[in-house]
């Protein structure tokens, strides 16, 4: 017995409300972030991640208030990603009650930002979020590149090399999303997850594509992920976090029940 594999529900938050993205278009409202966070806490979620998809800067203050409200009532780790661009953005989120922040586009724009953030706040709170798409043709050795701006903008950077570089710069964890799978409900990109998890010494969270409970277990056993993140499978009551953990436990995966 030892460290448990984690299940992390992810809430996409737009101007204070939880929404669900299907490949980042066709967004549906799924409710109040505080109520949803409490529900996941009761179900046994190991952490909760908020992805702030608010478009405008002045509405970002709303996210700070959401984090403050949730952190006052839900005593499990909280991560906030989306729009984290400066040391000051990080400080505001940590002071509001977030335990970790996810850095995505800002890391691609300036890799030294991750180093600066890790030196200032410690690696334990710096999660680098990587959005990757497979760029190799069928039959070729698989290769993935990172994309920014919700998967629209290619960067030409190899995803596995990028993960290694971000860890060298001080990332304490990698949140790895397959843009090919995100919103498809066809399961994680297990080859991608395994490639990154084997390449780095820090924990890797698999994300993108969960359609059924078995996908979560596969992310751990086949993808070698340390944690699995999912949104829609939990948001609409198809499954609870508790059910997911029971299934994982029945397959010999160590979880917190």
């Amino acid at each position: 017995m030892g460290l448990a594999k984690r299940i992390i529900p992810c809430l996409d938050v737009d101007n204070g409300r939880v929404v669900k993205g299907v490949q980042f278009v066709d967004i549906r409202d799924a409710g109040d972030p505080i109520e949803i966070a409490k529900r996941y806490d009761e179900q046994g979620a190991d952490e909760i991640t908020f992805l702030d998809i608010t478009a405008t800067h002045h509405e970002r203050d709303t996210m700070v208030h959401v984090v403050e409200a949730v952190a006052s009532q839900v005593f499990i780790p909280l991560t906030v990603g989306g729009g984290i661009r400066t040391v000051d953005d990080i400080r505001r989120m940590l002071n509001a009650g977030a335990d970790k922040v996810g850095i995505n586009s800002a890391a691609v724009k300036n890799p030294d930002f991750v180093r600066e953030a890790a030196e200032r706040f410690g690696s334990q709170c710096i999660v680098v979020a990587i959005d990757a798409k497979r760029v190799s043709a069928e039959g070729e050795t698989p290769r993935w590149e990172i994309f920014t701006h919700g998967g629209r903008k290619p960067t030409g950077i190899d995803a596995v090399e990028w993960a290694k570089k971000m860890v060298a710069n001080g990332a304490g964890e990698i949140l790895l999303t397959s843009m090919d799978r995100d919103g498809t409900k066809s399961g994680f990109d297990l080859a991608l997850t395994r490639a990154v998890s084997e390449a780095v010494d820090v924990p890797v969270i698999a994300s993108g594509g969960v359609g059924e409970l078995q996908d979560l277990s596969d992310g751990i056993t086949e993808g070698l992920a340390d944690a699995v993140l999912a949104a829609s499978i939990f948001h609409f009551g198809e499954h609870t976090v508790q059910e997911a953990k029971q299934q994982m436990a029945s397959q010999g995966i160590e979880v917190r029940l």
Binding site: G2, L3, A4, K5, R6, G172, D201, V202, P203, D226
Partner: peptide, 8 residues
């Protein structure tokens, strides 16, 4: 993995 992160 290090850091040791999660529920133990």
């Amino acid at each position: 993995k290090v850091p040791h992160m999660g529920w133990n």
